[in-house]
């Protein structure tokens, strides 16, 4: 019943603009306008190679978004079960979930990626893109698990007791009463994870997945214009991340003000 706006901060996250950062002269706007201006300036004044790079990369943007979106979905599903396991009184489920989180947090993301990717791709012959997505999902599922756990924890225990005393069983209580309330707390950090995941998805370029960075590397390898290419790549990532973080902060605002 308590309408405490709980904020979950798990991830290194992205630069979500702070409240007092809302004016026109804010870090966000400076970065945003800056990024757009520089891209425009470079493309207009030096179309060779900057325009060529810009034309070459969009395929990769699509792949980056594909990897990110499917991975966040996968990570959310794993995260939901991990979160449920972490709060479970069942020793077995609890231990599995906790161990998973412990293991994932203890191994560098890149190492996990390589490991899962080669295990799936080389040993089980899962396609590249799919193994990359599964790898990202498994890595991020641990963090998402903490987000779900915190979100579920934020709901007053009285809600569970009210539901149980009406005759709802544990699962009905979780899915009909607790989770529908917890999503308000869960959604903003999921947004943050989404942005963090998008950035980390650049790691899949090392595997055979043609995301933004991979496309850039291909371009650079052919043209030998490494500096120019990576300038463009960095600016593109920045632009995408800035737009997404604005979106997340809007969503956060709306959830906070959401008055029923």
């Amino acid at each position: 019943m308590k309408d405490k706006p709980v904020k979950i901060e798990i991830t290194d996250g992205a630069g979500i603009p702070a409240k007092n950062d809302a004016g026109l002269i804010s870090a966000w706007w400076i970065s945003f306008i800056g990024a757009i201006s520089i891209i425009t300036y470079l493309v207009v004044t030096k179309p060779d190679p900057y325009k060529d790079i810009l034309m070459f990369v969009p395929d990769g943007i699509l792949v980056t978004f594909q990897v990110t979106i499917f991975s966040i979905i996968g990570a959310s599903i794993i995260g939901l079960f991990t979160g449920l396991g972490r709060i479970s009184k069942n020793r077995f489920f609890n231990l599995i979930a906790s161990t998973y989180v412990e293991v994932v947090r203890g191994i560098p993301l890149l190492v996990q990626l390589f490991y899962i990717y080669y295990a799936l791709g080389r040993v089980l012959l899962v396609p590249d893109m799919l193994s990359a997505i599964i790898a990202m999902s498994v890595c991020y599922g641990a963090y998402m698990g903490e987000v779900f756990r915190a979100g579920i924890d934020s709901i007053d225990n009285g809600q569970t007791e009210a539901a149980r005393s009406l005759g709802f069983d544990k699962n009905q209580t979780m899915f009909l009463v607790i989770l529908p309330q917890a999503w308000r707390t869960i959604l903003p950090p999921v947004g943050n994870e989404f942005i963090a995941l998008l950035k980390d998805s650049s790691l899949v370029s090392i595997l055979a997945v043609a995301d933004i960075l991979r496309r850039g590397r291909e371009f650079a390898a052919e043209s030998f214009q490494y500096f120019e290419t990576y300038t463009m790549i960095a600016l593109l990532y920045l632009l995408i991340t800035l737009i997404l973080s604005k979106g997340v902060s809007h969503m956060e605002d709306r959830l906070n003000h959401y008055d029923r």
Binding site: M1, G158, E161, A162, A163, S165, V177, Q181
Partner: peptide, 14 residues
Amino acid sequence: ELGMVFQSFNLFPH
């Protein structure tokens, strides 16, 4: 068979 009423109401806010 057992209705229960709590001090803190515990209505479902959603």
